[in-house]
Design a protein around this nucleic acid. Structure first.
Length: 519
DNA sequence: TTCCGACAGTGGGGTCGCAAT
DNA sequence: ATTGCGACCCCACTATCGGAA
């Protein structure tokens, strides 16, 4: 199959907004793929490369050579060359990758270059990713979409499922089941505004502490242990503690879902940044970054399989019962069962539990419906996370031009807190929380306040106040106050408030001290 | 007809490994 | 030794489509 065909279909997919039409277009292309091409064609049209890392990003792609006049590149050839590029390492690697990318792009037509650019850059932006590619694949082979989705979630990659389906037809789906040692897409949580809303939506549920660390999926088969991240990268070697813990469990095999955090000598959690630093550090590194050498604590909250038995379809309550049997208390997340959330006393107990979780320094709670199965790969309403939200009134210092559907609008705001001398300290940026109407309005208002424009960032007079919600503060070397806002988003503009009454740096830093009390 | 679940897009800060400077 | 790039941890929110109610 020629790359030109993929580029053409991708363009058509991008040009229609109807999801049903996107799926039809994808299915048509997938039907034409050979079984051995499918593991490449299908990820490409889902905007992903089978090579997880190529070492090539936007910077390396900056200068494109003149395009070829005629399409000659096959999909197989592109995949082969990208595999070569990904394998380059050592001294001179960057220049060599750049050269090889240049050779590849020179063999591509203008339309193919546009496709490769976005594909390699990781932002295809055609309005279809894995979910629609799965539907397209199902349509192409005449299999039930839900079964194909489940096979991909349990059986690993889209490419592997595609190859089997195109070669063997719908019957091949039976082979894709949960297998110890092969990672499963983790179940994800939706957000709820507060605990009451979560309890109302969940029905009979358990309230669990939400720990601020790194999600891990631990597989044990006999003496063999493997640990995976949320995106299914294997990190076994970086977390020897987890192997030791898994081998200590009274089972022959198991798949566990949990979080790794780090606790100080008082049992309070270390900052997420420190945990992420430790988890990101390879054992070979003699590093001294923040968190290097920090001992990690795994805390498990679900079990997907144990001793040859698959548990995914059991209700949460039954999976929890198994978890309690195979994992000792200190390694399990704390949890309060709330069988009847409508009951006032039960609700009060849930609230007290959640307050205690926060008092102990954790992030919040997750409310889990007791009757729900483990929905691999789904961000369903069966799990609802609740975290406290902080707000500040900050001043817009500048705004960046938006991209894609935000082209033409000023989108990403630079936010500052007031200093005693009337200047402002930037605390971060945000592009979240705005409706199209707000984008339209702020673009006009900020243009009136503009004092400089470098083509990307429009600097404005610091007069516009905006209420910002965020989850907390984190250490920063980038921003002058030494802290940055975590997950900042716009709540509303405060045109009623002059910049002279915006929140001060001192107020912000006091928040930080309250978040992490000494001793 | 209206409602709502699932998706994709739009980017945020921090940290590491690795190569270039 | 420091800097820049790529990758990957954590992530919130809105708009849209299309099936459910």
């Amino acid at each position: 199959m020629l790359l030109a065909e993929l580029a053409r279909v991708s363009g058509e997919v991008a040009a229609t907004s109807a999801r049903s039409r996107k799926v039809e277009l994808l299915a048509g292309l997938f039907r034409d793929a050979q079984p051995d091409e499918a593991p490449v064609v299908i990820p490409y049209l889902a905007g992903r490369l089978p090579q997880r890392r190529t070492g090539v990003g936007w910077s390396t792609l900056r200068e494109a050579p003149a395009p070829a006049a005629e399409p000659t590149l096959t999909v197989r050839e592109v995949d082969r060359r990208l595999g070569e590029i990904a394998a380059v390492s050592g001294k001179g690697a960057q220049a060599e990758r750049k050269r090889l990318v240049g050779v590849l792009l020179a063999a591509a037509t203008a339309e193919e270059q546009f496709f490769l650019f976005r594909l390699i850059g990781g932002e295809l932006r055609q309005g279809a990713l894995d979910a629609l590619a799965v539907e397209g694949l199902a349509a192409a082979v005449g299999a039930p979409p839900e079964e194909v989705r489940r096979a991909v979630m349990l059986g690993g990659s889209l490419g592997a499922v595609a190859r089997a389906l195109l070669a063997g037809g719908p019957a091949a789906l039976a082979a894709f089941r949960l297998e110890v040692g092969r990672p499963v897409q983790p179940m994800l949580a939706q957000s709820a505004k507060d605990l009451d809303e979560a309890l109302d939506r969940a029905g009979p549920c358990a309230v669990e502490e939400k720990l601020d660390g790194i999600r891990v999926q631990v597989h044990r088969e006999g003496a063999r242990v493997r640990v995976f991240t949320r995106t299914l990268d294997e990190i076994t070697e970086r977390l020897p503690e987890l192997t030791a813990v898994a081998l200590g469990l009274p089972v022959s095999s198991a798949v566990l879902d949990g979080e790794v955090i780090a606790l100080d000598e008082h049992g309070r959690p270390h900052a997420f940044q420190d945990v992420a630093g430790r988890v990101g550090t390879r054992p070979s590194a003699a590093g001294g970054g923040p968190g290097a050498g920090l001992p990690l604590s795994p805390v498990f909250f679900d079990v997907l399989a144990v001793d040859g038995q698959e548990l995914l379809d059991l209700p949460t309550a039954e999976r929890h019962a198994v978890l309690e049997r195979v994992v000792p208390g200190p390694l399990r997340v704390r949890r309060l069962a709330v069988p009847d959330p409508a009951d006032g006393a039960a609700r009060a107990a849930a609230r007290a539990f959640a307050d205690d979780v926060l008092r102990r320094g954790h992030e919040g709670v997750v409310v889990k419906a007791l009757g729900a199965p483990y929905a691999a790969g789904r961000r369903g309403a069966a799990w609802l996370k609740v975290k406290p939200v902080l707000t500040l009134d900050l001043v817009v210092l500048a705004a960046e031009r938006g991209h894609g559907r935000r082209s033409g609008w000023l989108s990403n705001l630079h936010l500052g807190a007031r200093r005693p001398d009337g200047t402002f300290a930037m605390l971060g940026k945000t592009f979240k929380g705005m409706t199209d109407a707000m984008l339209e309005w702020q673009t006009g208002r900020l243009r009136e306040l503009a004092v400089a424009d470098d083509g990307h960032v429009v600097t404005v007079r610091p007069e516009l106040v905006v209420e910002i919600a965020f989850d907390g503060l984190q250490r920063s070397t980038r921003y002058p106050a030494g802290v940055a806002l975590r997950f900042a988003r716009v709540v509303r503009y405060r045109e009623d408030k002059p910049a002279a009454e915006a929140d001060t740096v001192e107020t912000v830093l006091a928040l930080g001290r309250r978040e992490a009390p000494p001793e």
